[in-house]
Amino acid sequence: MPVIEFRDVYFRYNEDAPWILKKFNLTIEGNETVAIIGHNGSGKSTIAKLANGLLVPQAGEIWINGRKVTPSNVWEIRKNIGLVFQNPENQFVGTTVRDDVAFGLENRGVPREEMIKRIDKTLQQVEMRHYQHHEPHNLSGGQKQRVAIASVMATHPEILLLDEATSMLDPKGRKEILATINRLKEDLELTMVMITHDLQEITLTDRVVVMNHGEVYKDTSVEQLFDDYEGIESVGLSLPLTVQLAIELGQHGYHFATYPIDSKEFLDALWTSNLKE
């Protein structure tokens, strides 16, 4: 059974605005990690808000865990979905890191003994346990986002939606969050959807969905994505530097089995690549 399913969904923000999504269909299976990428305005962030019930489509249906989302059950369904926004400060409500993680648990009536266990465990998972008594607003960007992830994970969601979760971070903070996401993927049975425009983040995913003007342009694997690198550029996405280098070297006789996305992949691929005859 699909965990997330969009069926012929249409959405726009007002009657005079163009459609953000048009007859949009998407299916995501359980325990799958999917990147949804696209240029600004392509509809990718709207997908996350619709899946979480923050927005309601004008037409079509959204199904979560085999249940059609309706006004009467949206609050119940939302309990199984965690959403992390690009600006973590928008999610802070507590005066300390520990209080912030506890907030969602208190709202759900989790018993105190269980709450303490969950707080300690999730802060440990994101490597923020030593900062539990710090004020969230005094942390670095990467640390703030890790606290936001911990606050969501403490509620034990079955689905984690990351909406541009690294877009406001510097390279160090981005690296911290990607490492955290990778640990969660390895340690937990979790369906994860990463909304991003940064193609270097897709290395953690099982599948990549490319959006263009409210429609799916391409639904493929990470390994096959850049086989159509000209098409990827045509929909407004910038190729990773390593992919650009591999393309350039290919014009000078080097053969790469797949296009490397990060520097380590590039060096490994360059070491094993063969010159064409």
Rank of each mutant, 00 (worst) to 15 (best):
D187F: 06
S234R: 15
K218Q: 12
Y13V: 12
F92Y: 02
R67L: 06
L55D: 07
K49C: 13
L225F: 05
E230Y: 09
N80A: 14
V208K: 01
E106Y: 04
A59D: 14
L275E: 03
I28F: 07
N107R: 05
M194E: 06
G38Q: 00
I247P: 01
A165T: 13
K175S: 10
V34E: 00
P88A: 07
Q200P: 14
R146K: 10
P136F: 03
I36T: 13
A148D: 03
T203C: 10
A35F: 03
K49F: 13
N25R: 10
E201K: 09
K175W: 08
H130G: 02
T205V: 11
E127K: 05
K79F: 12
K144I: 11
R98M: 06
N274W: 07
E32K: 09
V152G: 02
P157M: 01
E135D: 06
E158T: 13
R112C: 02
P171T: 15
N87Y: 13
P136V: 08
A246Q: 01
V101W: 06
T258H: 06
V3H: 03
W63N: 08
G30I: 15
G214Q: 05
L139Y: 01
R78H: 08
R78Y: 00
Y254V: 02
K264N: 03
G250V: 00
L239C: 00
L190F: 01
D268M: 11
V97A: 07
